[in-house]
Structures are given as C-alpha cells and as structure tokens.
C-alpha cells in the first residue's frame, strides 16, 4: 500500500531544541506565577543556570523544576538566587576603585548630596567597599548608597556583612591596590573563620529590592555601579537598563560597569562618554540633548 505519514514518522527532536522549549516554559511559568520576567536574559547563560537549578533541586528535567515553580511559592527566593549570579569581592578590580577614589569622588565632592546606586549589589562586598572609599574621602556623611538586588536572599546576606575570613587576605591586597591608606582590618572584626564588616559602614546604605527588568527610576543618582550584571542581559534589555540609568543620573553623573562589559555597541549609550574606558567608567553628557516640544 501507499505509505502515509504519521506522527511516528517525525524525526526525534534533539536535546537542545527540547532544552529551548523547556527553558521558555520555565521562564513563562516564573513570569506568570511570580511576575519575574527573565525572558530578556541572555538565553545561553540562562539555560545553563536553569539547568543548574534543576540539578540542585534534584529534578530530572527542567519540566520537573517547573512543577516546583508553580506549586511551591516558598521556593521563590531560592529560585531567584539561583538564577542570578551573586559573586564578588571587596575592591574587585582595584584599578577601577582607584579611579573612583582618585578621579570620580573628587568631582562628586562638588555636589551637596551624593547619591550612589549599586544596582545588583549581590552579597554587598562592593557596597562596603564604596562606603569605605567615601569614608576615607571624607564624603560619607553627605552620601547615600542605594544597594538594590533582585534576590531577597542576596540582600539579607549583604545587609549582614558577614564573609569568610579566608577572603580577608585577597581583599586586603585589593584594598591596598585600590589606593587604600589604612588597613582593611580597621573595617572588620574576624572571629573563628568569619569576618564581619563594621556595621557603622551601613549607616548611609539603604538595601532594597529592585528589578532592573521591570522597575523604574527611584532616585537621582550621581554614580551608578552596575558591575557584571548587563552581561547576563540580551541587547534590548541592556538598552532598557541603560536608559533607566540615564534617567536616574544627574547630568555629568558617572556609570561604572564590569570589566567584561562595555557601552560600545549599546544604542542607549549615545549620551554617555568614556571617562576611564580601561576600567569601564562612563559619564553622562553634561549637556542635555536638545529639548523638543
């Protein structure tokens, strides 16, 4: 007889296509169940992290993970933590902190009030580093740091300011390399194998949850640090976030990115000029674009 096509004849779908479908479904589930939209995250890295989450939660497939997403709302903080990549050091990339210390802060000193937004503060190492910089520049009393992150868990850790004492050596070296004149040990106390940062450093820090994907401008910022966050975003999302930064910054305000990030190809970058390109510090044009009625 004549052959007729049936479903059985369809070629088996390969794994990566399946992955794509599953990740899309996962993203959709998370979005519709909890309102968090990850659809604009860079797909390759998102897929890896979703896969990782599935492994951690002992799900055989991402579909299995979706069940958790839908039926166990208490897992949300863990999911959010797993989907973001919170890792940093104090004074990570000391050269950048040196530029902040020697070139940016002296300029910011001419503002009566200095607002700094650390977008994606993760576990807070850079927040405390900033506070130390401001303290040493004598500017901390008229400064306000907004430390925001998507993950509630990360914020809790950041607020606690407790880290493994093993880090202290590396951090001290970073601090010195960033031009620090004291000893980093002045700012923490170590006990057992933990070190806790001086809680006085927290006195002008506001920790708050903020979702760069959905939320808007909430402060007038003179400096925004958003390091190693944009690399996980797709280009349209990067543009959204950059315009969010642009609208938050005062004219002449500064933007610091991660060493692997750049404004070179972003269309929203037009208003920014390189201030210290090697350490990825940019400055918003002090002349606003022509206003149009």
């Amino acid at each position: 007889m004549y052959g007729c096509a049936t479903d059985v004849d369809k070629p088996a779908m390969n794994t990566s296509d399946l992955d794509t479908i599953e990740v899309e479904l996962f993203v959709q589930a998370l979005q519709r169940r909890h309102g968090y939209d990850f659809s604009q995250y860079a797909p390759a890295s998102l897929t890896r992290r979703v896969q990782q989450l599935a492994d951690q939660m002992e799900c055989k497939t991402i579909s299995g993970l979706i069940e958790h997403v839908l039926h166990e709302p208490q897992l949300l903080p863990r999911l959010l933590e797993g989907l973001t990549v919170p890792a940093s050091d104090m004074f990570r990339d000391p050269a950048m902190f040196r530029v902040l210390r020697e070139q940016v802060l002296p300029l910011l000193a001419s503002y009566p009030q200095i607002n700094i937004w650390q977008a994606g503060c993760a576990h807070g190492q850079e927040v405390y580093s900033l506070a130390i910089l401001l303290e040493e520049a004598g500017l901390y009393e008229r400064s306000q740091i907004f430390a925001t992150d998507l993950s509630e868990r990360a914020l809790e850790q950041a607020e606690a300011g407790i880290y493994n004492a093993r880090e202290a050596q590396q951090w001290s070296r970073n601090y010195q390399a960033s031009g620090g004149t004291h000893s980093l040990a002045d700012y923490y106390s170590a006990r057992y194998n933990l070190l806790k940062l001086d809680q006085r450093l927290r006195r002008h820090v506001t920790f708050a949850r903020h979702n760069l994907v959905a939320d808007g401008v909430f402060c007038e910022a003179h400096l925004i640090l958003c390091r190693n966050v944009l690399i996980y975003f797709s280009n349209p999302l990067q543009d959204r976030v950059l315009s969010l930064f642009r609208n938050s910054l005062v004219r002449g305000g500064f933007l610091g990115l991660g060493m692997r990030e750049s404004l070179d190809y972003a269309s929203a970058a037009a208003n920014f000029s390189a201030f210290a390109e090697p350490v990825r510090i940019y400055r918003l044009a002090s002349q606003p674009e022509p206003a149009l009625s």
Binding site: A42, A44, S45, R48, R49, Q52, V85, P86, A87, N228, I231, Y232, G258, R260
Partner: peptide, 10 residues
C-alpha cells in the same frame, strides 16, 4: 560557577 558563567557569557 560565577566566574565560569562570566567567562562563558563573555
């Protein structure tokens, strides 16, 4: 994982 992630993304 994070730095691997960063590297991979890069």
């Amino acid at each position: 994982m994070a730095s691997e992630e960063e590297l991979r993304v890069q």
